[in-house]
């Protein structure tokens, strides 16, 4: 989703108020974001949390 919008990890991180490393860790399944961050990310991309994080959704 991020790459579809040609967003750098740093840009998304800045928009979410977290570090670039946190975005990288989420993308690589090394960190599960908190519910508020998951909702903020979903809202940012205009999708539901399930669409954003659930592979089976």
């Amino acid at each position: 989703m991020r790459l579809d919008r040609s967003l750098a990890q740093g840009q998304l991180a800045q928009a979410m108020g977290v570090s670039r490393q946190t975005i990288n860790s989420i993308e690589n399944d090394r960190y599960t974001p908190s519910l508020p961050l998951a909702m903020a990310l979903a809202r940012y991309f205009g999708v539901t949390v399930e669409e954003m994080f659930d592979d089976q959704a």
């Binding site: 108020g17 977290v18 570090s19 490393q21 946190t22 860790s25 960190y31 974001p33 908190s34 961050l37």
Partner: peptide, 16 residues
């Protein structure tokens, strides 16, 4: 360094 900024406080987010 992310570690230094996290320890220092200004680079601290929910993951840190």
């Amino acid at each position: 360094s992310e570690t230094v900024r996290g320890l220092r406080g200004d680079g601290r987010d929910e993951r840190f």
